[in-house]
Amino acid sequence: MAEIILNVDVRDGVGTGGARAARRAGMVPGVLYGGDKAPVAISVDEKAFRKSLYTGKLLGHLVTLKYGEETQPVIARDVQFDPVSDRPLHFDLMRVDENQTVKIEIPVHFINEDQCQAFRQGGSLEVVRHAVEVKVPANHIPEDLIVDLSGHKLGDTIRWSDLKVPSDVEPTIEGRDFVIASIKSSSAAKAADQIEAEEAEAAAEVPATEQSDEG
């Protein structure tokens, strides 16, 4: 079962007024939805919520919701933050079964850039997808999708098939091996190559000019 437990209260007040009242009481308002049940307005202690949030194992992961003596698995689908204070303002929880297949976005992380020769040659990483939506059992959601850059070369295109993912993780994009990122020559590297080529061309023309003058 999930490592994180969210102890929630059911909110009587809904809408903007109810959410503000919850925040004034030191709570983070939220909503529980999904399954064959109606949405329920809930709230959770802000300090406990922040602690769970900053572990990195709350958003997009299977966690346990606890209300009194009742527990159920849920997935935290969204958290809204104050743009100035970064305070959590609202969250969404989705009811799930542990073995249920869910659709969820997983972030893509790139590792071993320092071991990739392409970047020492002036290459740059152009990321097409920072996250990929996948279908996966709720109790087996990966924290991230890893791209190992150590074996890639300048000009390489990194596709879904290049990622090492568990067999039960499938992309929702079907029928094509879509692009995750590519390694391209940077504009600075291209400019340096062009200058070098022009200098080489100019140097090659000098002897022919001198020979013409002597004649």
Rank of each mutant, 00 (worst) to 15 (best):
V132L: 10
A181D: 04
T101P: 00
S186R: 09
I111E: 11
Q80N: 12
F49A: 04
E199P: 01
Q100P: 03
A197Y: 11
A41V: 06
K164M: 08
G35T: 00
E69P: 02
M27D: 12
E143W: 06
G56S: 09
V179I: 15
K135R: 14
H140M: 12
E98V: 13
E46V: 14
K184F: 00
V147R: 03
D144Y: 13
I180V: 12
F49E: 06
D162K: 13
V31F: 02
Q117C: 04
Q115E: 13
I146H: 03
A131Y: 06
P73W: 05
A76G: 03
D97C: 01
G56H: 06
H109P: 02
G30R: 07
I183A: 05
G122Y: 08
H130M: 12
P142I: 07
V74Y: 04
R95C: 05
Q72R: 15
R129W: 00
D92Y: 00
I195C: 01
V128T: 14
S167N: 11
G123V: 01
L149N: 01
V74Q: 04
S150P: 01
V169W: 05
I104P: 07
F178T: 02
R95T: 05
K164T: 14
A48I: 03
S186M: 10
E70N: 11
V136E: 02
P29F: 09
